[in-house]
Design a protein around this nucleic acid. Sequence first.
DNA 1: ATGCCGGGTACGACCCGA
Length: 259
Amino acid sequence: MRIATWNINGIKARLPVVLQWLEQQKPDIVCLQEIKSLDENFPREEFESLGYNVETHGQKSWNGVAILSKLPFDEVHRGLPGDDGDEQARLIEGVFSTDNGPVRVCCIYLPNGNPVDSEKFPYKLGWMERLIAFVQTRLALEEPFVLLGDFNLIPTGHDCHDPEAWWGDALFREESLERWRTLSALGLTDAVRAVTDAPAYTYWDFQSGAWRRDNGIRIDHLMLSPQAADRLQGVTIHRDVRGWDKPSDHVAVEGQFGF
DNA sequence: ATGCCGGGTACGACCCGA
């Protein structure tokens, strides 16, 4: 089974590119972030016609997440628990049945957190703490669990072209990294780093020729429970799509699994 | 550091992203 994550930066603007990629790659499950669409405005029929079941957790103008799956959804959960006042749509989870048992897939759009002297940074840190508590409940199920999406987090200096330029940013500073390490230490495996030590950028800014200069960062991640990590067969970063017409600033990251 | 690009809303700028 092939499971991918992709921050598409707006479904309305990105629909042709997403459809072209799906027709070319035919992944089994795709987690989308930044759909920037209300549920009722999401073009679900376009994906259903390609054989995908569609579940969204949308929001007007910003954020919004979705899961496309060739397998039917056994369960769907929307929103990150722990703050009833949080109205930002940043998490959707599906459970699927395979020949090898259930697989739980959780799609997240972790807050950016910049600027760090605004309320956005404590919101990011609080969101990460709620995510840690949520993941603990999922790991207790002891089943294949894939937590994937745009984490807005650069794990190490090796995960960006210019670490000096990024240090201190909400994506690459101690408070964020401390929570990332806590999350990892719960027992999650970083799928990309399980298969390669090479730079593996997933985002290039639209500005300043970042793509042309390969001035990228690795912030889109697949984090695996032990039961999912045991089944990991490979990872593909779909870099070439960044060079297509009207691309997102992120590219898809895909894991191949033996379930 | 800021806002060079690009998408959102909505139709004129301004908010947001990473």
